[in-house]
Design a protein around this nucleic acid. Structure first.
Lengths: 270, 270
DNA sequence: AGTTGCAACAGGGA
DNA sequence: CTCCCTGTTGCAAC
């Protein structure tokens, strides 16, 4: 379940490692992860060159030259691995991209992942990515004014709003836990009830939390492009059921909020 | 709050009284009840002849010659009145239709009503009427097979389903009360839980209830085309809070079901 | 009491 | 909660 920090690091590593390489052998093991037929996928990708790689939310945008974009979403528990020339490929993968220099990239996901391909002209109509919200790591895009705009008029609870990729792109059920804790917000708090200070804190904490995790290379139990784990492991309350709250010592509770699990300090988060 | 019985009677009276008359002076006091601009409304209606009038759900369809349909919805607490030649018009009305013989028709609604006009070719695209469901007074249309079809796959409660005009057209929050009581159904009963006997009873009771009310000229507190009240007043449980259930004597309760009020016998309706 | 559209929410499926 | 789609429900608007 990579979220924005892991995806952003993968995209950065891909940009550095793959830029300029020419795709020779795209192979798709699992056709259902594609948005087009296998033959069309190969035709769209083969012999194209990697021009740029960037992250938006949980999606990796791979710009190919000429005029094509590869859109990758690792779903839950997915991995993206780089393989030097001559290295053995993993036993299981859903898609493999071979490059003209003998290196390769494999994508594997235990649940649902996407390997989508669109012509450059059609990128704006690709539903899953066209509707993505603010990018917290992009200071041009992630401004307080934009943040308040997306929140305006919303009546529901704050946690589902944070998880909705149309609002802010890249937060999943892992990072959202400490974001709520650090803002002292209960997951069920209704958006209209948030005061100005809470909104400002939330805005700031989202960026701080994701930037910090990104700088640490992402979660310790996720792998980067070279199979190396991240170094972020010190959750404050996330996944620490029964352990003491780092602020007040109260035991962290695991509760159900809507259809997701939440880890909260029942004292600090109201 | 006219529902199908009142609307059906109005349509019948209009058909008998107005067929063949030529519209000369359409006047709209309140433009917001129109679906087109006032000038276009007049152009579409003026000098046309009343060809036919029929009811569908809570809507009155007035076919004009040539090639136009007037669609009237009285909303909540609306009235439609016929005025003989020389008679004084009411003080307040939202729309007035004058005929070449000196007679007139006025429409007044205390809340939201619609006076829509469509070209014959566009009738099928008029959203509010195109999506109307079964017509309980039309035995060709209101068949048990069609009834079950509309119910198939629905998971929600029976009362909202009955009130949704897309399923059955013409039931409002007044007539629905006794329909549910006579079928012995609690308003919150889930559709998948209804057994075959209950479905058959409901199908039959809907028609019986609406036919009976129509034959009685509609509700005693609603007026017909000539300002005369209907003769239907003997609700079984509807609007009889605290009065005894006609079957078991238990006091009728007024409860909230979703966003509407329901009058039920807590003993008979499960 | 009427109708629509939207937002929130739940469930199923890929 | 990875994402979509559909249906249901509640709410505000006219």
């Amino acid at each position: 379940m990579p979220e924005l920090p892991e995806i952003a690091n993968l995209a950065g590593q891909m940009a550095a490692e793959l830029a300029g390489k020419r795709l020779t052998g795209p192979e798709v093991v699992q056709e259902k992860c594609l948005n087009v037929a296998g033959a069309e996928f190969r035709a769209l990708v083969e012999d194209k060159t990697i021009a740029a790689v960037r992250a938006r939310g949980k999606w990796i945008f791979v710009s190919l030259h000429p005029a094509t974009t590869l859109l990758l979403n690792l779903g839950m528990g997915g991995e993206l691995l780089y393989h030097p020339a001559g290295a053995a490929l993993p036993e299981k993968f859903q898609a493999r991209f071979a490059f003209s220099d003998g290196t390769a990239l494999t994508a594997a996901f235990s649940w649902f992942g996407y390997v989508h391909t669109v012509r450059a002209a059609d990128l704006a109509t690709h539903k899953m990515t066209a509707s993505l919200g603010l990018s917290p790591l992009d200071v041009q895009d992630y401004t307080y004014a934009n943040f308040l705009d997306r929140m305006r008029g919303r009546k529901g609870a704050i946690k589902p709003w944070l998880l909705d990729q149309k609002n802010i792109a890249g937060i999943g059920n892992v990072y959202v836990q400490d974001i709520l804790f650090r803002t002292r917000l209960h997951p069920d708090r209704k958006i209209p009830e948030l005061d100005e200070t809470e909104r400002q804190t939330l805005f700031r904490v989202i960026r701080e939390n994701l930037v910090q995790a990104t700088e640490l290379g992402g979660l310790v139990y996720e792998k980067d492009l070279y199979g190396q784990p991240g170094r972020f492991k010190d959750f404050l309350v996330g996944y620490r059921e029964g352990k003491p709250c780092p602020v007040c010592g109260t035991a962290v509770e695991k509760i159900r909020t809507g259809s997701t699990a939440s880890y909260i300090c029942p004292m600090c988060q109201q």
